[in-house]
Computed example of a mutant assay.
Amino acid sequence: MEGLSFFTTGDGARMAYRFDGRADAPVLMLSNSIATSLHMWDGVMPDLAEHFRVLRYDTRGNGASDAPAGAYSLDRLGRDVIELLDGLGLERVHFLGLSLGGFIGQWLGVRAPERIDRLVLSNTSAHLGPPQEFDRRIAELTGDVDMQAIAEGFIRNWFPSSMVDARLPVVESFREMVLQTSPQGLAGSYAAVRDTDLSRIVTLVTRPTLVISGEHDNVTAASHGEAIAAAIPGARYLVLPCVHLPNVESERAFVDAVRAFLSGAA
């Protein structure tokens, strides 16, 4: 837990976060994918921390944050962000969310636009279904849970088979993140995704937005990102040649696009 700080939300959950980068730089908040921790951003941190004061946190149910019992809601996950910003005295930040983090980013863009400067939504959807699929996954997380099989499923959905079969260290680091995820926290996170449909209200996002998709993403298809970008007035849209984690698989193009957008470059 080196480098981590903690705060407690209004409903009593203990949440982990950390800062990297210059104290006088613009703040960029990063929000992670389901079943990962803030370490999913480690590979891009040297570059991002050179230009931003990067605020990373573990979504409730993931990483070093608490994993309360029961279904989570997107409203609760969004309020966790607002409460953290309030506690840190941060009025407005850039926000980059990937997958589940992108759901949270959309919520913030609709419900708390005054807290967001520029918004990056990567490899995410406004709605994922059917709900029965998430009910099945939640049921698998009770009793004797086979986290090895669950981790393998995530890894196969996140990376191309060539990277998985080569057992690259970066892939194995993500496998370890899944294995360290609380089954109770994962179930709660699944419920938040299951119960969320932002497809009608995402049009209310008014902050400058960049939407990034993976050309080969089978979790949050590129068509989902394209629909979000089409719904948000003035949003920019970028497709990268990757699966679900462009920050790993298309690292250079991803960082360059994020930096250019956040700096206001055309």
Rank of each mutant, 00 (worst) to 15 (best):
G129K: 07
I212F: 02
D47I: 15
S99W: 07
R76G: 08
S223F: 13
Y17A: 11
A257G: 07
E215S: 11
A266H: 12
A23N: 13
L38M: 10
G89H: 06
T203N: 02
L238S: 01
G234C: 03
I104K: 08
D135F: 13
M147A: 02
L100D: 01
A67V: 07
A151V: 06
L4V: 00
E2D: 14
R136I: 05
I201W: 08
A265P: 01
D144N: 13
V258R: 06
F154H: 14
L77N: 10
T203P: 00
R194Y: 08
T220E: 07
G188T: 13
L245H: 11
D144Y: 10
R156W: 09
V219E: 12
L88R: 03
L240P: 07
N218Q: 15
D11H: 08
W41H: 07
T124D: 06
A112R: 14
A151K: 07
S182E: 06
A16L: 01
R92L: 03
V81L: 07
P233N: 09
A149I: 10
S37I: 11
L38H: 12
A69M: 05
S37K: 03
P113A: 12
P246S: 06
F95E: 02
R92Q: 15
D58A: 08
L85N: 04
P241I: 12
F95D: 01
A231V: 11
R156H: 13
R60Y: 00
I34E: 02
L90K: 09
G89S: 06
G129I: 12
V110D: 05
M147P: 01
P130W: 01
V145F: 06
N32Q: 14
G188W: 05
T9F: 01
S173D: 15
V171P: 00
D165I: 01
V211D: 02
V211I: 04
L98V: 15
A71D: 12
I82K: 09
N62W: 05
M45C: 05
P241N: 00
T142F: 15
L48C: 12
S250T: 15
V205H: 00
Y72P: 04
F95L: 13
A192P: 03
A35W: 02
P233F: 05
G143E: 09
A139W: 04
H94K: 07
S33Y: 04
F261A: 04
A235I: 05
E172I: 11
S5K: 14
A265R: 06
S263Y: 06
S199K: 08
A126R: 10
E140H: 13
A69C: 09
S173A: 15
F7C: 03
A231P: 12
L262N: 02
G70H: 03
L98Y: 09
F103G: 05
W158H: 07
L238E: 08
G21Q: 04
N247D: 14
V205P: 03
L210C: 00
L168I: 12
T8W: 02
M1C: 09
S125N: 10
G153T: 05
L198G: 09
I232Y: 09
T36S: 02
N32S: 10
H127E: 12
